[in-house]
Amino acid sequence: MVAAAMISARPKTAKRLRWAANANAWLLLLPALVLLATFTHYPILATLYHSFFSLGRSGPATFVGIENYQAMLEDDVFWQVLRNNLVFALATVPASIALALLMAVWVDRKITGRSFLRLAFFTPTVLPMIAVANIWLFFYTPDYGLLDQILRFFGFSGHNWLGDPGTVMTCLIVMVVWKEAGFFMIFYLAALQTIPPELKEAASVEGAGRWYFFRRVTLPLLMPTTLFISINALINSFKLVDQLVIMTKGGPNNASSLLLYYIYEVAFNFWDTTYAATLTVTLIAILAVIAITKFVYLDRRIHYQ
């Protein structure tokens, strides 16, 4: 009898203990949770909610279901900025990663002026995007901009780089790659320095050349860094629009506009807050898909030590 009672009591005590431990954990998490809920989760939910309502200018807002989303699908500008954003991402992400890796490998070696080079490569990252955009605006200015002056020196004619829909995107991509690569280089540099030098020596004893070692050892060992960087770059390509405000305002004719900038225009120039909410939900969905892909799929496939 007594033994039976004890046995039945034990799980109860265990449960209470577990609950106490849980409560403790929840208490510790509370401040962060409150902040996140207030400034991230609630706004997201509110945005989602608003995206199902009419604008309600001079009148109450009414529930319209997915009408705003239907309007979005019929909005040519939405499709264009989405296309632009994809082009922008597909061009900036691999290019900035490749450049970052190249620079990191270069300045990781023992060469003279190494710290100067590192600093030079990192400088663009330290500058605010607004400053960078202003600098590059001067490069791209027709006729007396740096680019045109150089071209003219070699006898070519100038070009209205930012005013031509055919070139404006490339111009912005080049600038963003320049700006981002230095930042990513730092991550690669840090990762490269965690690779023990003996690995290189062991490989050289085995007869592996520099390129073979880079391909078969360095690159795989950098994979977690590469993954981290590419997710960041991808998210950045949807988040970074400061340059548009300074350089093109998304023009000419939306040729350089990106999704987030379009959201800004809809919200603060058109004052169409519900449509802006609709677009925002779409953007959040895109970012969520990227994040989930990273956490659920890619992390499992890429080796972590």
């Binding site: 690995l199 020596e201 062991a202 994979m223 080796h303």
Partner: peptide
């Protein structure tokens, strides 16, 4: 053979 073994972790 190295002191740290120098195995390729991946």
């Amino acid at each position: 053979v190295f002191q740290s073994y120098a195995l390729f972790p991946h």
